[in-house]
Amino acid sequence: MFETIGIWIAALLTLCIFSFLYKDNPFYKFAEHLFIGVSAGYWACYYYHNVLQPNLFVPLFQEGRPIFIIPLVLGIMMLLHLVPKISWISRWPLAFIVGTYAGYYLITYLQTNALEQVTATLVPLVTFSSVVLFVGVTTGLVYFFFSKEHKGTFGGIAKFGIWFLMIAFGASFGYTVMARISLLIGRMTFLLKDWLHIIQ
């Protein structure tokens, strides 16, 4: 019984969202506002149960680990944004978050986006694939060089690099569109199979 009601609600909301393909209308507005409201509430509960409780309340109040006073204080400072007179205090935890993550990711990105990529490209230039790899990576890097204007030979190499990028984007575009079509198929299957029982 409840499952059937759930399927009907899901199907009607799906149609409401699809109605946007025609134009903006009250059905879409209803589904949109419902989606945003429900998901915002859902994520608030999710963060409380999966982030705040296990990572702050339990270690601090149940296990008595005093180090967790620091995130508690930072969290309270963040909430002070709601008090106009002292809202400037909320900048401090923000600066802490931004600074910490910038430093943390410097090393991560240097490893994954620089050293490991370079190491993987150091291949013997004996096959067509390895030559394409080498030329593509090198000319691509030249395109992302900002200290010199793209003119003359340097500009030509950079242009070659952007061609490589565009070919890669084209391939990626086709691949991702295929994946999106599968999402549409999933929705249509839900409507025709679970809701209308037209297909088995």
């Binding site: 370079v118 490209t121 150091l122 291949v123 013997p124 230039l125």
Partner: peptide, 28 residues
Amino acid sequence: KAIFIGILILGCVLATLGIGWLTTLLTV
């Protein structure tokens, strides 16, 4: 980036010649 381009060119030439110390040096 300029240094990495230089390493790429040198490393690929060395790898083609069968010399792999640069790859070992850069492996994390």
